[in-house]
């Protein structure tokens, strides 16, 4: 039966049929009756929370560049600080 099933898959090549049989004997099939040992929903929630926190914590590079530019500008022209603060 197994050999018949492989016929279509491996183009009836005898070497391939033997190789497929050897592969099945080396790696027994897992089958259908396997359930996770635990409910995976808590792990899913953790994953979603991690991603949400990561997204909140990661500040875009252009925000850093803008802040750096403002600091540099304030250092070069300190008299502009009140003007910048006024417009914030």
């Amino acid at each position: 039966m197994t050999e018949e099933r492989f016929q279509g898959t491996v183009n009836s090549d005898q070497h391939s049929v033997r190789m497929a049989q050897l592969l099945r004997e080396s790696l027994p099939p897992i089958g259908d009756s396997n359930d996770p040992e635990r409910d995976l929903w808590p792990a899913m929630l953790r994953r979603m929370d991690e991603q949400t926190m990561h997204r909140a914590a990661s500040i875009p590079w252009f925000d850093w560049a803008l802040a750096g530019g403002l600091v540099a500008f304030a250092a070069i022209a300190p008299r502009t600080i009140p003007v910048i603060l006024y417009y914030l």
């Binding site: 050897l22 099945r24 004997e25 080396s26 790696l27 027994p28 099939p29 897992i30 089958g31 396997n34």
Partner: peptide, 12 residues
């Protein structure tokens, strides 16, 4: 540990 045993195991 997770795989089902096969009839051909002993032969190989």
């Amino acid at each position: 540990s997770v795989a089902a045993p096969t009839a051909g195991d002993a032969a190989v």
